[in-house]
Design a protein around this nucleic acid. Structure first.
Length: 145
DNA sequence: GCCAACGTTGGC
DNA sequence: GCCAACGTTGGC
């Protein structure tokens, strides 16, 4: 069980659109970056991820779950690219902004801060709990909600 | 809309 | 295998 963060520009694919897909979830297509792809390849069913709005919003808006393992990206014939599927789990009661993350010394090493351009990134367990706490959730009991 | 950071491509 | 050119991401 690992934690992740997925970035999306809300005018391309928003949290509302993701939620509209319900438990069926949706393919996280369009990733054309090896690092991001490699992270997706290591994901397991049930892994949880923050859903982050980049460009506009600049905040963690919800929590999603990996519900299909990495498989060829259907939006390209280029066999180098594959991706997982994710489904929305729940909203963050309170959105956690990039500003909030940067202002928290505990999150100074978070990829969101240190690897600004990486669109799929790992989140450490203590970072997960901290961001959940800031968002009004107890990350430790999240699976029981 | 600008531009810095950084990943990718392609010539050599 | 280097590195300059180029393209893209994403914060501001």
């Amino acid at each position: 069980m690992q934690y992740w963060l997925f970035k999306s520009e809300p005018f391309k694919w928003s949290w509302d659109q993701q939620k509209a897909k319900g438990d069926a979830g949706e393919e996280w297509d369009g990733i054309r970056n090896y690092q991001a792809r490699n992270f997706m390849r290591t994901m397991e069913l049930g892994d949880l991820a923050f859903f982050y709005h980049s460009n506009e919003g600049l905040e963690v808006v919800g929590i999603a779950e990996v519900n299909a393992l990495s498989a060829p990206d259907t939006t390209t014939d280029d066999e180098r690219w594959d991706c997982v599927h994710i489904k929305a789990v729940r909203d963050m009661p309170k959105f956690v902004t990039l500003k909030d993350v940067k202002a928290n010394p505990k999150l100074a090493d978070m990829s969101l801060v240190t690897s600004m351009r990486l669109s799929v990134q790992p989140v450490k367990p203590d970072e997960w709990i901290e961001v959940c706490r800031m968002g009004g959730l107890d990350g430790r009991t999240l699976k029981d909600l």
